[in-house]
Design a binder for these strands. Structure first.
Lengths: 338, 338
DNA sequence: CTGATAAGCCGAACCGGTTAAGTTACGACG
DNA sequence: CGTCGTAACTTAACCGGTTCGGCTTATCAG
């Protein structure tokens, strides 16, 4: 229990607590000599500012909030998040900011939590993930005046500051890839349509397919492995059978691969598979999965930096973080002849 | 910004702020009539206690800490954690406690963070995960007087309160399973030996193998998919070749399966595979993986409840949470003849 | 030598709660 | 009828910082 307070430091330095505060916060009001002395004594005594006290008087909590509106069980299946959170932390740690991470069941609870946080003065800003089409959280946050950065496309952000990755360009790259291999009939196993990111990809997929003259359709799922497997089975029963399947995440792609192999079909000879969200999973299957790769950790870090910018008074902007890179691996090849 | 303070409530009720505090905290000192009136007005005004103020005066932060000493990249690969964190949250939310989650690079930083947290008065207690053999964090936490619950075996806890799952019984079940199928030569692809849990399993594995008269050895890895694959390759080159392989996590098991198949061996006809940490991953491969399953979400919840007990003054104890269940699936079968 | 100016520091209020100590009113009891 | 005890509040100190008005003292122009 370090009971070292600035009062104690003040006593030792023979100055008032106020002066110590100025010195420690690098503000004018004390001479350089005094400042140096205070800093030395504070370091000697291993003084650490009391968060609650600082928060109470300064009306800043030095904490960012991040809410995941998913069931705990879903989170087990989504390696994506931990990487993102890790990226967020890496930036926050440098600023001695803290992260309040909350897991709730749905958007309603998420909104209620924002309200509570504002009332409690718990967070200075929030990172909003999994944007929906016409996301109800955006007007609420705006009205609450809670600084926020949306992790998603500007088309979903309604002028709220956001950081996004170019899903449209990525989708183009993926379809170009399969089309150039000669595929003409393709299917896509997508996430839930209410997710903004899925919606963006839906648009991009349809547009690119039409542009390339492909026969292409989409099967929506809940992102889970089980539904990914089911969707793969359904998709493979359609006539004409698709010769390439795109997946909206890695887990469904891996599940799909197992289904294809269980049906005694071969990858890539009979079907080409392409995954979104590259992860170690895509590299441990046999064959390895072609995937759209992006740096989740870096993404989390970038979003956090932008939120710090917003706090510092930057004008709201949309920032493109990156375009996913298509990593071509063993799961893609030309379509079977015939 | 709900600027509703107890002072405001006091004014409206015509009593002093102190009385309001007594009323709101269900403490003696006010009449039932007044208490009811205060509660009504507080609800009407949507009063929410200011965390910082309460923390400052009550010297409780109503926050638990959880530090993950792993690289952000590792976390991407470990779905385990999000489920655990989700379980923790589910209990904390009911108590309106908060969780401070920090991701750091190593144990040294983790210890430094505990020190900082104590100095800042940031947390009331911590959940300690990934216990090591002779874990350096335990004496530090003890000296700091920071309440903690260790997630791991009592043998690793040095009398610190802990919640554990019975790895020894689980290992026995796994070895019984493969032995009863007729396997006599088995290998184990394990995690890093400095991890306490791995160490416990090492002991259990050796003991059970000797007891059953099996030829058994262990290959240690860093838990990653890549090393899991490498270890599988090495293990399969040993003469006599093992007919069954046990893995310390699901990711390595999936990677191992791909390696086995790439070598044109068949599961389970040529090799039986058994995974630890059952997850959707184990159910989407072909064949599905036999695995030791335990409820990670419930585990997190239980640990959190125990920490609340410790805060409430319970005597330090070791609590057995569960014994993992062996889920037998398509990846296990009798050894090949000859 | 005087008066203006500003740097440097002090004291105190304040943030929004909690809580020990003090006050008042009322009923019971000798 | 006076005294004492107690329920019901009020007051004020306190937690550990931040911040602001004002007081000293040194500096310098006039």
């Amino acid at each position: 229990m370090s009971r070292v307070t600035i009062k104690e430091i003040a006593r030792r330095c023979g100055v008032s607590p106020g002066a110590v505060s100025y010195a420690l916060n690098n503000r004018p009001g004390v001479s350089e000599a005094t400042r140096a002395r205070v800093l030395r004594v504070a370091a000697e005594m291993e003084w650490v500012p009391n968060r609650a006290a600082r928060q109470l008087s300064a009306a800043r909590s030095e904490t960012f909030g991040l809410i995941l509106a998913r069931s705990a069980q879903t989170l087990v299946e989504e390696p994506y998040f931990m990487g993102f959170v890790g990226g967020v932390e890496s930036v926050l740690a440098q600023q001695s900011y803290a992260l309040a991470l909350q897991v709730v069941a749905n958007l309603g609870e998420e909104i209620a939590t924002y309200r509570k946080w504002v009332a409690e003065g718990r967070v200075d800003g929030v990172i909003v993930v999994d944007p929906r089409v016409s996301d109800p959280r955006i007007p609420v946050l705006r009205k609450l005046g809670l600084p926020a950065v949306l992790v998603g496309d500007p088309a979903l952000a309604d002028r709220m500051p956001c950081v996004w990755i170019d899903s449209t360009a990525a989708m183009d790259a993926a379809l170009d890839h399969v089309a150039s291999l000669g595929h003409r009939v393709i299917a896509r196993v997508a996430g839930p349509p209410e997710f903004g990111d899925v919606w963006i990809r839906d648009q991009a997929y349809d547009a690119a397919a039409q542009c390339l003259g492909l026969t292409a359709w989409t099967q929506h799922t809940d992102y889970s492995a089980v539904h990914g497997a089911d969707a793969t089975r359904e998709v493979l029963e359609v006539v004409p059978r698709p010769t390439a399947i795109l997946y909206d995440n890695d887990l469904m792609a891996v599940a799909g691969l197992a289904v294809v192999q269980a049906l005694d079909l071969h990858v890539p000879d009979d079907v080409t598979l392409v995954a979104w969200d590259d992860s170690p999973l895509c590299r441990i299957t046999h064959p390895r999965l072609t995937a759209l790769s992006n740096n989740v950790v870096g993404y989390g870090a970038e979003v956090t930096r932008r939120l710090l910018d917003v706090l510092a008074g930057a004008t709201p902007q949309a920032h493109l973080y990156a375009t996913p890179t298509l990593r071509i691996r063993g799961s893609s090849g030309p379509p079977p002849r015939g």
